[in-house]
Design a protein around this nucleic acid. Structure first.
Lengths: 112, 112
DNA sequence: TATACAGGTAGTTTTCAGGATACTTAGGTA
DNA sequence: TACCTAAGTATCCTGAAAACTACCTGTATA
């Protein structure tokens, strides 16, 4: 797991930020770190996200195998989203992001 | 440096990604991790970025005190961009991002 | 005189993630 | 027969990020 050259390392930064970035994906992954959540649970904790946006983001995260969708046959039928094994590995990264953010509040809170 | 509650932690994720995210900022910071770079050096390594976009991104990073701009009086005059002390602290985070990205290539490279 | 390099600025246009709004499917319940 | 909840879909629209194009300033070199 060696960084072959600087340029490659930096491309990876851009690619990872493409996955985790955007307005919602980081937050969705962070929420799923704790435990699986249903569609409407996510919709509630992600204040102001619309159904269509949440659906799109979840489908994307499914496509890249970060999240899996599980239909639970009960009545009414409910759908649960949880991190895959790959997805689990993002927990540490999110922890690092939170740590950096809390340590540098003056930057993080100044930004807007 | 304690996470008071889940919701706060997750807001921080979103805020940090706001700073580091976007198409260019992560890459710019990653390039500046190694050593200071001049405007046109950055423009070269960041393939396809335009002058105006690079200027905007650098001004933003200056505003939030991640990067500092140093004019070097020689001829022709050159301008050097380097991480501030705050900025330095992002090195570790970028290292973690690269590590995760390389370990999960199948996700990172599938995404598009 | 003019051409090149370094580091930009100004103004306009394009693109597309995310938002707004309304509708859908399917079983259960009064 | 109508309505409720859960989990979406379908369309169209908007705003902001980034791109495109052109121009500017100062110094030096031919």
């Amino acid at each position: 797991m060696e960084i072959k050259n600087k340029q490659q390392g930096i491309k990876v930064v851009a690619d990872v930020l493409d996955i985790v970035g955007g307005k919602w994906r980081g937050q969705i992954l962070a929420h799923l770190c704790d435990d699986p959540k249903r569609f409407n649970e996510l919709k509630t904790v992600l204040n102001h996200i619309t159904s269509s946006t949440l659906t799109k983001e979840l489908r994307y995260l499914e496509d890249i195998k970060m999240v899996e969708r599980k239909i639970i046959q009960q009545t009414p039928i409910i759908v649960e989203y949880r991190l895959t094994n790959h997805g689990m590995s993002i927990k540490d990264l999110i922890k690092h992001i939170v740590e950096w953010g809390l340590k540098h509040r003056e930057i993080v809170f100044k930004k807007d």
